[in-house]
Design a protein around this nucleic acid. Structure first.
Length: 802
DNA sequence: AGCACGCCGACT
DNA sequence: GTCGGCGTGCTC
């Protein structure tokens, strides 16, 4: 008898191991590693992943697998191995990791129903509830206030039975096709019988005699200028039939991708591509860091590397930050490789994601372009993995399992013996340091295509503006520059990293700042809805007219949000049309794309936006980029804030003057002397790198030290702090003396959603036992986590410190 | 996570 | 004496 080792869909410490199940004879040839099954677990049924099939078990009373949920394994053996590794690296539950590798719709959904085994013996109450039906939803029983005790009694007496149903949520989209239901000869005869008045019916039959293949219903209607009533007549006569056929939801259906051919490479592109091609040829597991300035033509290098991989019959994964998975980017890959490309990103509906994933699973595509989770594409013969904008923090997942796509890429690269390419204009310090040490193979592309220069950057000191009596958010220099572009019919991109109208609202009388009652954070004013919103929880209230503290009506807005800038622009330059892009205006599906298209067609002169416009945009007519207030970013409580500022400024500057027209960049700041602003304005990555490395060394941050961040949350502040203190002590005691344990410290956001947050930070060089110690600490608090709603988050190599 | 089992207080 | 409250522990 064969035995399946199964990880069940119960994310707890006590169930974080495999459970053994017998494979009943009818399923013997079906069950395979990597499949999802439904298994009895205690009194109920749950979904589980088969990790292995073995012939022996240490347990004696094994239950049978209930049902198989997949025809083919949905996780390859490689992904099963990888999943185990990630779970151990991130101290996550196995089940969480496997779920993270798959599209949402492959998660199980659970249902309970009550079945009546008898009609006559049932108590009157239940007879009434069932009302003649054999089965009712458990949910219905609850909603009608069913008596739980009576239910159990009936179950014990054998009158009722509770069914636990495990289902996969995926659905296949089908379309209705119409096809002939009879031999063509019979159809020809049938035409004679059709009434002479039924001209359309005859036409349809004649069509099918000529083209007997099934045709989609809607298409048939269009082709023959008819409707379902006519077709239905023929179906009634048994001459035609309908067939349901599975179709892929195609998110790019309406788009035509202009086929592109490989472009001739510049010298520096060729020099970057050669070693990559060589690594592909020789199946070398090498990590390349492609350091290319914005506009240096990195994408063309990727495309030609992929072309070679496809030529060799292998597959390619391309990761792109979520935010820059723009239509322009998709266009380039689809244009070169056509239907061999699957695209995975968050703007797709769950069904569309599943369909794109299915194409990969069925090996119908050779290339996947996607955000973070596309790193788990179930390919089996990977020839290259490319991570574009490798410094982007969105490659780190901010929930369990807290993996970094770069590390997963390296693991898979080792498995498949294939090269990894990390591309960026502003590599992460850690990556560049590795490249300098020779751990990564550094490839440089210092020049822009067509020898265009990076646009000159002017840094405007906003303190001077204030002294000169300019209290607006635009410096005189920037306004003048915008005006010039508008007059010349050119376009402007304005960047601001704050959405909403104002960052906070304060009473001038007493200084009270309107705060979220759950989060200890200032509320943001949204003018369009006239609401105060918390960006950390869902709290929102109508804008207050009087101070909640002193009752005065001297409420003032401080700071600047995108909405406010938009309004102010209209005052200063009324003739300009503005397109605003932030989370609020791009929430609806497709709006992101639509707004960019409008801007591309010149329907507006100014594009104003947050982070999302910093990357990947390429509009020939944009000759001015303005950065309104970079200081908020510079002063975030994050040791990477300088690096992030430098990266962002470089990124944004790259949006200007990419083509024939020369560009210009204006950065407004209150701290023009800061090195990240100074070096960004000079496009001097090397100098920034050295100075930032010096800072990291002296403060003991990556890449000199590794970090682990433990965040404890609890409804009670004292409790949260006390647990954190104990954890710090335990870590200090068990880690090596070289490790530095900092804390307990209140998190930069002490309270979110009425829960207090305290942190412990570990800085270390080498702590092989660290994960074991942390696992033990987690187990120690297991009960309290369970009982007392305590949470302990562990983040290895964190990217966010909030 | 669910669900059963079991041990204590307030009731017909 | 019983009903039902929730704390505790298990699920192959």
């Amino acid at each position: 008898m064969l035995i399946a080792q199964v990880i069940v869909d119960v994310p707890t410490n006590q169930t974080n191991h495999t459970f053994d199940y017998l494979i009943p004879p009818p399923l013997e040839d079906i069950v395979e590693k990597g499949m999802r099954v439904s298994v009895p677990f205690g009194p109920r049924k749950v979904m589980g992943f088969v990790l292995d099939v073995v012939s022996q078990s240490e347990w004696d009373k094994l239950k049978d697998i209930d049902e198989v949920l997949d025809i083919h394994p949905i996780l390859t053996e490689e992904l099963l191995e990888l999943g185990k590794w990630i779970s151990e690296q991130t101290t996550s539950f196995y089940i969480q990791t496997f779920q993270a590798m798959l599209p949402q719709v492959l998660k199980a959904s659970y249902k309970k129903e009550i079945e009546a085994l008898t009609e006559v013996d049932l108590s009157p109450a239940f007879q009434q509830l069932f009302a003649g039906r054999a089965v009712i939803d458990y949910q219905e029983f609850i909603e009608r206030n069913g008596d739980h005790k009576q239910l159990l009694e009936e179950v014990n007496q054998g009158h009722l039975h509770i069914n636990y149903i495990v289902k996969s949520k995926e659905t296949n989209k089908t379309k209705t096709f119409v096809a002939p239901n009879k031999d063509l000869l019979i159809l020809e005869e049938a035409i004679e019988d059709i009434s002479a008045r039924a001209k359309k019916q005859k036409e349809i039959i004649e069509y099918f005699i000529q083209y007997p293949e099934p045709i989609e219903k809607q298409e048939l209607f269009k082709k023959l200028q008819t409707t379902s009533s006519t077709v239905n007549q023929l179906i009634k006569k048994d001459l035609l039939k309908t067939v349901e056929k599975k179709v892929y939801r195609d998110p790019f259906q309406a788009e035509h991708f202009q086929r592109t051919e490989p472009l001739p490479l510049s010298k520096q592109q060729q020099e970057a591509l050669d070693p990559i091609h060589q690594a592909i040829d020789q199946a070398e597991n090498e990590v390349f860091l492609l350091h290319g300035v914005t506009g240096s033509g990195k994408t063309e290098v990727y495309l030609q590397a992929i072309a070679k991989v496809i030529e060799q019959g292998q597959e390619a994964i391309v990761l792109v930050p979520e935010i820059s998975l723009t239509p322009q980017m998709v266009q380039r890959f689809k244009g070169r490789f056509g239907s061999q490309v699957a695209v995975l990103h968050s703007a797709l509906s769950p069904g569309e994601k599943f369909d794109e994933w299915t194409k990969i699973h069925k090996k119908e595509v050779k290339v996947v372009v996607g955000a973070r989770s596309a790193i788990f594409a179930p390919f089996e013969n990977i020839g290259i993995i490319i991570i574009d904008e490798e410094h982007e923090t969105s490659y780190k997942q901010d929930e369990q399992p807290r993996y970094h796509a770069r590390e997963i890429a390296k693991w898979r690269g080792t498995f498949h013996h294939c090269p990894i390419v990390l591309g960026s204009a502003t590599p992460m310090l850690e990556s560049y340091a590795r490249a300098k040490k020779g751990v990564y193979h550094l490839l440089n592309m210092p020049d822009r295509m067509n020898n265009t220069e990076m646009p000159p950057v002017e840094v405007v000191d906003m303190r001077d503006e204030l002294h000169a009596g300019n209290r607006s958010m635009f410096s005189r220099r920037l306004l003048e520059a915008i005006q010039t572009r508008i007059d010349r019919g050119e376009q402007v991109v304005l960047f601001l990293n704050r959405r909403g109208y104002s960052t906070f609202v304060m009473c001038r009388e007493c200084g009270e700042v309107m705060k979220c009652p759950n989060c200890d954070i200032a509320l943001t004013y949204h003018k369009s809805s006239h609401q105060l919103k918390c960006h950390y929880c869902d709290y929102q209230v109508p804008m207050v007219k009087e101070c909640t503290s002193c009752g005065s009506n001297t409420i003032r807005y401080f700071g600047t949000g995108t909405q406010k800038v938009e309004e102010s622009l209209k005052e200063h330059i009324p003739e300009a049309t503005v397109i605003r892009m932030d989370v609020d205006t791009t929430r609806r599906k497709g709006s992101h794309k639509r707004l960019l298209e409008q801007f591309g067609q010149g329907k507006a002169q100014i594009l104003l936006g947050t982070q999302m416009i910093a990357k990947g945009l390429d509009f020939a007519n944009v000759t001015l980029v303005g950065v309104l207030a970079i200081d908020t970013m510079l002063h975030l409580p994050d040791f990477r804030s300088s690096e992030k500022t430098f990266q962002l400024l470089t990124q944004v500057s790259g949006r200007a003057g990419r083509h024939k027209l020369p560009g210009e960049v204006v950065i407004q700041t209150y701290t023009p002397e800061h090195y990240s602003i100074e070096y960004a304005s000079q496009y001097n990555y090397q100098q920034f790198f050295s100075q930032e490395m010096e800072m990291r060394r002296s403060f003991g941050y990556p890449p000199y030290y590794y970090l682990t961040l433990i965040t404890v949350t609890h409804a009670n502040a004292f409790k949260a702090e006390e647990v954190t203190r104990t954890i710090c002590k335990l870590l200090f005691k068990h880690l090596s003396p070289d490790a530095r344990v900092l804390g307990p410290t209140p998190s930069p956001m002490v309270r979110i959603n009425n829960r207090y947050r305290y942190q412990c930070m570990v800085k270390y060089k080498d702590e092989p036992n660290q994960r074991d110690i942390i696992r033990k600490i987690q187990q120690h608090y297991n009960e309290e986590v369970h009982r007392d709603n305590l949470t302990i988050q562990v983040d290895f190599e964190p990217y966010s410190f909030m």
